[in-house]
Amino acid sequence: MSVVTAPEPAFTVQGVDYQTALAQLRTVRETVFVREQGVPLELELDELDPQCHHVLALDAQGEPIGTVRLTPERKIGRMAVLAAWRGRGVGDALLLALLDKARELGWHEVSLHAQASAIGFYARHGFLPYGERFVEAGIEHQAMRRLLDAANPVETHEAAIAALLGVIGTARRELWIYSRELDPGLLDHPDVVTALRQFGTHRGVAHILLQDAVAPQSSHAPLLGLAQRLPSALLFRVIEEPIDRAYASAFAVNDRGGWYFRTLGHRPEGETRIDQPARARQLQNVFEPVWERARPCSEFRALGI
């Protein structure tokens, strides 16, 4: 497994031998799970540990700061990052290293049990929720999975939200969203609105095509309020050409190969993938000529958009 080096403050991420690195793994896991989250020690340690692939993050002094494992059942687990290092890319680097390992092993799919507070983090890495939430070691969890070499089916409303978070969260500078009327239940979901706000405040630009501009205004769609605060980040146009209005699908696509496509634009079901540039370019090529033919949303001028 390759070593991943992050910008300053520096840390490295690498695969480790379980027995050799046991003390370092336990330092991180017991700090986070046992002392911080109150998980009983006898539940934190299990018989699978010696059989797993383990990845360890080390700071510039070689001290352990994070870890995660991949079990023989193809499940990612025991993701732990010390508090001082959270929000600095350690978790992302750990997860990417394990996904690389799963591909190296030729695995088609990986799954995990995400703590409820971490669902958005895993969604940004292409994982979709399935099944009901459950309690594990006294903490609410959600099962999630990701296909590594194919589009992931989006079958529920919860998976649709995760798919959008994945596309928005992995965008670099541009998003293209083709919607009917700002997709009530999806584009007004608080997590999606938050993700778009974060994207916009980091100089990202979302181009949003609508078939109906009146309905979002009548329903006070949250994205319109966001666009008032970030008018250069959310750009709207309305489709008028009959041939364009006959298009029944909807999609979101970004500039890093991420996409979420729905054959029926009024339904959440579809497919998604965050790492397929060829398909993303296809969807962008569908979007751009329609954008050029569409008109600015005069309906939103009173809102200052």
Rank of each mutant, 00 (worst) to 15 (best):
V3G: 12
P7E: 02
E8M: 09
A10R: 15
G15W: 02
G15F: 05
T20S: 13
A21E: 01
A23E: 09
V28F: 08
R29Q: 00
E30L: 12
V32I: 11
V34R: 05
Q37E: 12
G38M: 06
G38W: 03
P40T: 09
L41K: 13
E42K: 11
L43G: 04
L45S: 13
D49H: 06
P50G: 12
P50N: 09
Q51S: 13
Q51H: 15
C52D: 06
H53F: 15
H53A: 11
L56Q: 11
A57D: 03
D59H: 06
D59K: 04
E63R: 14
P64W: 07
T67R: 01
R69P: 10
R69F: 13
P72N: 07
E73G: 10
R74W: 11
K75R: 15
R78K: 05
R78F: 03
L82I: 10
L82D: 03
R86A: 04
R88E: 08
R88S: 08
G91I: 07
A93M: 03
L96P: 03
K101P: 00
K101W: 15
R103I: 06
E104R: 11
G106P: 04
W107C: 00
H108T: 12
E109Y: 02
E109F: 00
V110R: 01
Q115W: 03
Y122A: 00
A123V: 02
A123R: 00
H125Q: 08
G126I: 07
G126A: 06
P129A: 10
Y130F: 13
E132A: 15
V135P: 00
V135W: 00
E136H: 07
A137K: 05
A137F: 09
G138P: 03
Q142A: 07
A143Y: 08
L148S: 02
A151R: 08
A151C: 02
H157G: 10
A160W: 04
A160C: 13
A160F: 06
L164M: 14
R173S: 13
S179I: 04
R180Q: 11
L182C: 03
L187W: 02
D191K: 10
T194Y: 11
T194A: 14
A195I: 05
R197S: 10
G200E: 07
T201P: 01
R203E: 14
V205I: 13
A206E: 07
H207N: 15
H207V: 09
H207I: 08
I208R: 00
Q211L: 08
A213W: 01
V214E: 12
A215G: 08
S219N: 14
L223T: 10
G225N: 12
Q228P: 03
L230M: 04
S232Y: 05
I239S: 14
I239E: 14
I239D: 06
E241H: 14
D244N: 10
R245P: 01
S249E: 05
A250R: 00
V253Q: 04
N254W: 08
Y260T: 01
L264K: 08
G265M: 02
R267F: 09
R267K: 13
P268C: 12
G270I: 11
T272R: 04
A278N: 08
R279L: 12
Q284F: 07
V286Y: 14
A294K: 03
L303C: 04
